[in-house]
Computed example of a mutant assay.
Amino acid sequence: MIDPHTDRVLITGAAGEIGKALRSGLRAEWRHLRLTDIRPIPDLAANEEAVIADIGDRPALERMMQGVTALVHMTGAPAEHDLEMLFRVNARGLFDMFEAARLAGVRRIVFASSNHAFGCYPIEEPVTPAHPARPDSLYGVFKVLGETMLRYYFDRHDIRSVSLRIGTYRRLPIDQRSLATWLSPRDVVQLVERSLRHPDPGCLVANGYSANTRIKVRDPNWDFLGYRPVDNAEDHVEMLRGMGVDVDGAWEWPEHGGAFARMPERPARA
């Protein structure tokens, strides 16, 4: 278990939407929060310190990791970026961050993976974290890489970790698919906190959703973590219906990854 009163936690991507939610939800209990992002991090509390750095700056990563017990790695390039950016941030940067953590003696890593790590499974199949990965995009491929790297760091270096296959993180659900995949701000805080406080998660993969009525996965490892989501996308069905979203018809996408699984990619060379 990571002790919120004595252990320093480093949160990457702290200026992003999930990072903001984590700061708001954790700062009251966690006494030593170190925050990093390439963008400014405003309104620091007394128990927060900020390090502005690029994930490609390996010496900066090694410096910021000093004295850190747990890493919450939320930095990532979104799926719409090209291969070069995805590789720089979500592959090379990911390795540099994890390796800096190892060299500094970090004991726990919580990683923002994605449900796009299994997005090519048919929606009728209730996927569990025990299923083999079936990424639906290069973005998903690099998330699987992160999960695999954490298995290596567990087996070789005894670093405990939780990879969170985060679904649709928004303040409110946004479409039909998010009625199954929504993760609310207060639920993401609870999920990360449970991942930090668990006495021994081993090398765990867990789904990152709220308690949605229309959830399409099974055995998400929530009981093991002690995660009890409190929000449900179904509470916002009328809002979506009023926006013209079809919440009553057949499921729109045939795979768990939604549109990702069928997006056109660069054509093969002739």
Rank of each mutant, 00 (worst) to 15 (best):
I2M: 13
D7M: 05
R8G: 10
A15F: 01
A15P: 06
E17W: 01
K20P: 06
K20C: 13
L22F: 05
L22V: 12
R23K: 09
L26M: 15
A28T: 12
E29G: 13
W30E: 07
W30I: 06
R31E: 10
L35A: 09
L35F: 02
T36C: 07
D37R: 13
I38F: 11
I41N: 09
D43G: 07
A45N: 12
E49H: 11
V51I: 15
A53Y: 07
A53R: 06
D54R: 14
P59R: 00
L61W: 01
L61M: 03
R63E: 13
M65C: 15
Q66P: 12
V68R: 04
T69C: 14
A70I: 12
L71A: 05
V72Y: 04
H73D: 12
H73R: 14
T75P: 05
E80P: 12
D82V: 10
F87T: 13
R88N: 15
V89E: 04
V89I: 13
N90F: 07
A91D: 03
F95R: 13
M97Y: 03
E99S: 11
A101R: 03
R102D: 00
V106K: 01
V106S: 06
R107Y: 05
A112H: 07
S113F: 00
S113C: 01
H116T: 08
F118N: 15
E124Q: 14
E124D: 14
P126A: 08
V127W: 00
T128P: 03
P129R: 01
P129T: 01
A130D: 15
P132H: 08
P135L: 04
D136A: 03
S137P: 10
S137E: 08
G140W: 05
F142W: 10
F142N: 05
F142Y: 14
K143D: 06
E147Q: 07
T148G: 11
L150I: 02
R151M: 14
Y152K: 09
R156D: 05
D158V: 04
I159E: 12
R160W: 13
V162K: 05
V162Y: 02
L164D: 07
L164E: 09
G167E: 06
T168Y: 04
L172P: 06
P173S: 06
P173E: 08
I174T: 15
D175R: 08
T181R: 05
R186D: 12
D187V: 08
D187I: 04
R194L: 10
L196F: 03
H198E: 04
P199Y: 07
D200N: 15
G202D: 01
V205M: 09
G208R: 04
G208I: 00
Y209E: 00
N212F: 11
N212A: 06
T213P: 02
R214N: 03
K216W: 14
V217S: 07
D219N: 04
D219S: 05
N221M: 06
W222L: 07
F224T: 07
F224A: 08
Y227V: 05
R228D: 12
P229Y: 01
V230R: 15
V230P: 11
V230D: 14
V230E: 14
N232E: 10
R241M: 03
M243C: 11
G244V: 14
G244L: 04
V245M: 10
V245T: 13
V245A: 11
A250F: 07
W251H: 14
P254V: 06
G258W: 09
A259Y: 11
F260P: 09
A261W: 14
M263L: 15
M263Q: 15
R266P: 10
A270R: 14
